[in-house]
């Protein structure tokens, strides 16, 4: 976005960022798996809003459709199929030492993010100012993704569908309750 960022934009960007972080925190602290999954949906929606504000409207829409929609439904299915039992029965497997170590790693990663934000990105990895918005205005948000996906990487795309099919068949074969041969 060329020029100074309008206050309206900045306000909403940080608003959605805060919602995403807060709901992610609530998501990992819930004991009930269904409630946790619902909070994850909120995180996904806030992320989608952030994508839209970053001129990636297509990824924003896909985020809602695929993550908040399809994948969360599968999560809920798995949670209900597995029937984990009462939340109180699910004991925390790790002791205090593990929690402290995990917290330290998390703080380290957070510090890394702040360090990266303050530093400058090397030239080959950064786009010129306003480049994404120009591209979206010139050829829309979908065709820069669709072009490579269905031309250059079509073979890889099709093989991926075979990989997913195999994973599903394998899971069903292993998971099916078996009656012995007659």
């Amino acid at each position: 976005m060329p020029g100074p960022t309008p206050l309206f934009y900045t306000f909403h960007f940080y608003l959605f960022g805060l919602i995403a972080v807060a709901s992610a925190l609530v998501f990992v602290t819930r004991k009930s798996p269904v409630a946790a999954a619902m909070w994850l949906v909120v995180t996904m929606f806030s992320l989608a809003a952030l994508y839209v504000m970053l001129d990636a409207q297509f990824i924003g829409a896909i985020q809602v459709l695929v993550y908040a929609g399809a994948i969360m439904v599968v999560f809920l299915f798995v949670i209900m199929l597995l029937n984990l039992g009462e939340p109180s029965q699910i004991a925390d497997a790790r002791g205090l030492g593990w929690k402290l170590a995990a917290g330290a790693v998390g703080l380290g990663l957070l510090a890394e993010i702040f360090a990266l934000v303050r530093g400058t990105v090397a030239q080959p990895f950064s786009l010129p100012e306003g480049y994404a918005a120009q591209q979206v205005a010139a050829q829309g948000a979908i065709s820069p993704i669709a072009g490579p996906l269905f031309h250059q990487y079509l073979l890889a795309f099709e093989i991926t569908s075979m990989v997913l099919l195999t994973a599903i068949v394998g899971a069903v074969v292993l998971g099916k309750r078996r009656t012995d041969a007659r």
Partner: peptide
């Protein structure tokens, strides 16, 4: 991945 996933199952 295609090979491994089927051999795992």
């Amino acid at each position: 991945e295609l090979m491994s996933l089927s051999v795992y199952s």
